[in-house]
């Protein structure tokens, strides 16, 4: 009985450690680029929140769309009011999993496949893209590039400005996760 008791205790102790394998960041960078030769359309948010569960290989992002800063104030206003419609859909989120093998103990940069659902403007779409992950003891660095189109998310672009906005929008994500306690 004593053995069983100890076993249970150690069993849960181990489990508790395993559950600490969650890494978090509150200042992930998301860069947004839909420039054309006519107009530079670049915005960046450094307020994205993201978590990685290195046990289950789960990854999630969340960003307030109003946190994207543009060079032109008017562009920022149009982005929020007319395109992404921040008052109605204040957040963009991603929920996914790392589907290729990942060795979290190695400190080398590994390219992995990520698959998951990207939700913005009230539309959810599944995406598969590659990400670079560099694990370290107290920090996991990750970056990824993702191409989306406004049409995929029901974002209508009037014909008058269609030529000024790139058909494909490039999203660059840069995050540096720390252990969550």
């Amino acid at each position: 009985m004593k053995k069983l008791c100890l076993l249970t205790v150690f069993g849960f102790f181990a489990f508790t450690l395993a559950a600490q394998n969650v890494y978090l960041t509150k200042d992930a960078k998301i860069n947004f680029n839909s420039s054309t030769p006519i107009e530079d359309i670049i915005a960046e948010s450094n307020q994205a929140t993201a978590v990685i569960d290195i046990e289950k290989n789960g990854v999630q992002f969340s960003v307030l769309t109003t946190s994207f800063k543009f060079r032109r104030a008017l562009m920022e206003e149009h982005f929020n009011e007319n395109y992404i419609e921040s008052p109605k859909f204040p957040k963009a989120t991603f929920k996914g999993k790392i589907t290729s093998s990942m060795d979290w103990k190695s400190d080398k940069t590994t390219t992995v496949d990520v698959k998951g659902d990207l939700t913005m403007h009230g539309v959810t779409k599944e995406f598969t893209f590659q990400a670079q992950i560099t694990p370290a003891k107290e920090k996991i660095a990750a970056s990824a590039t993702l191409k989306i189109t406004p049409e995929q998310f029901n974002i209508a672009i009037p014909s008058a400005v269609r030529e000024k906005i790139a058909k494909e929008v490039t999203l660059k994500i840069d995050a540096s996760f720390v252990p969550y306690h």
Binding site: Q20, V22, K26, T49, V51, D53, Q60, S62, K95
Partner: peptide, 13 residues
């Protein structure tokens, strides 16, 4: 500690 990522993300915002 093992709460799902959803609520963790929501709490961290």
């Amino acid at each position: 500690k093992s709460q799902d990522l959803d609520s963790l993300l929501a709490k961290s915002a």
